[in-house]
Computed example of a mutant assay.
Amino acid sequence: MNQLSWIQSMLRPHLRSFTPYASARRSMSGGSIWLNANESPFGRAYQVATDDLNRYPDFQNQALNKAYADYAGVNPEQVVSHRGSDESIELLIRTFCEPGRDQILICPPTYGMYAISAAINHNETITVPLQKENWQLDLKGIEAALNDSANSVKVVFLCNPSNPLGNQLRQQDMEAVIAMCAGKALVVVDEAYIEFVDQPASTTMARYLDQYENVVVMRTLSKAFGLAGIRVGFTLANKSIVDALLPVLAPYPLPDVSVQIARQALRLDERLVTRQNTIEIVAEREALLTVLPTFSWVRTMVPSVTNFILIQVENAAALMQHCQAEGILLRNQSAQLGLSECVRITVGSPEENERLLEVLANYAPAA
């Protein structure tokens, strides 16, 4: 037996033909304008101390958790900090889903890491697609899946605002799902893009943590805060869920330098800068939403409340190739359920968006 076949035989069987998540950096490289990962175009400088880098960081930095609790309007005991939202997804599945038995439920098109993390943990993913006519939850379909005696759904993931669509789910629909799952499953609301909606405080499900015992909210500093590079995210949940997650969490989930920068970013003065940057991104988004439909090759466009826009075009691969040749990286979402010939465009800086529109104006799909 050669070395490759021996390693393959050692793998867990369900991982032998496993396809990993194709992240923006993993699937594309090069380019001078990156509009493929929903990152903020605005970077900032922070100061870090390096005197204690010979020591392990805190398991949970209490000052950081309190700062985020104050920002999110929850209690510090309802906050877990960790490596981005991706670690939250993995942590919730590993904590609550028995491998090979329990399932998660998702509503595609949606963020791909929910299903990937479930697959790694050997959990099946039940899919109840969004209703295509309005991209809202299929409540009857979700209820049927939850009540199916053949299923054992432990975690339901709802992405709001949606990635890759960019729209919002109806508040009453999410509350209906929470009620359906009471005593059965967690409802995890991924709010990575919450800062870009008109009224985040009245939109977030974090305000219901004390009302619904099965609600979990995922947050990140990667998007509006412009800190994708430090990989800091938060899980917000009631104390009983937090107490269940902490024993499963890695012993040192966040590097000390990441904690230092995150704490600085959550100061009031820095939050004001983030808010101003968000306002500028939203203004740029609205400008793009006005111009993009004027191109003859754009078929449809999903109204966005995020920092990206999803468009359906005549030939997604050709558009991607044209933009990449000009140094602009976009994200092809055509493999997602219901998103044939769809491209996602991150809202960049004014200069980046101006260049994007110049390149798009010179694009003509082949006849």
Rank of each mutant, 00 (worst) to 15 (best):
I33D: 06
H322M: 09
E191G: 06
M205C: 14
K223R: 05
R299C: 14
P109C: 13
S222P: 13
S23C: 10
T220D: 01
A67T: 05
A182V: 13
E213S: 15
V232N: 03
Q60R: 03
Y193E: 02
A182Y: 13
E87K: 07
A119L: 07
S85A: 13
L356P: 03
S304F: 12
L360V: 04
G73A: 10
D256A: 14
L288A: 11
S240L: 03
V197H: 12
Q78F: 00
E280A: 15
E98N: 08
A144L: 15
M10E: 14
P99K: 11
Q47Y: 08
A179M: 14
I106M: 09
S40E: 00
G43V: 08
T220E: 02
L158W: 01
A115P: 06
D52L: 06
S9Y: 00
S304L: 12
S304A: 15
Q172P: 08
A262K: 01
R207D: 00
A244P: 00
L236I: 02
V305N: 06
V155S: 12
R331E: 10
V273P: 01
S88H: 03
M113G: 02
A150F: 04
A250Y: 13
R16L: 05
L329Q: 03
N75W: 00
L254V: 12
L146V: 11
V188T: 02
N362M: 06
F157S: 07
N353M: 08
I309P: 07
R275E: 12
E270K: 01
Q211C: 01
V128E: 08
P41Y: 08
N238V: 07
P303A: 10
Q333G: 04
Y252N: 11
I279F: 12
P99G: 14
Q136C: 10
Q276W: 15
T203H: 15
V155F: 15
L169R: 04
V232K: 06
P200S: 02
E87W: 02
N54Q: 13
V347L: 04
A228L: 14
P76I: 10
N123K: 07
I126S: 11
G229D: 14
I261N: 00
L254Q: 05
T95F: 11
R94T: 05
L169G: 04
L292S: 09
R299N: 09
D190V: 02
A316G: 01
I178M: 13
E284Y: 11
M10D: 10
F18Y: 15
W34M: 09
N353G: 10
Q136S: 07
H82N: 01
G183L: 11
E354P: 03
D210M: 11
T235C: 06
A45W: 05
L330G: 00
E175P: 07
V291S: 02
V232Q: 02
P161Y: 09
S152C: 10
K154V: 08
Q168K: 12
V217I: 10
Y21A: 14
S152K: 13
Q336L: 01
V188D: 03
P200T: 03
G229T: 13
D86K: 14
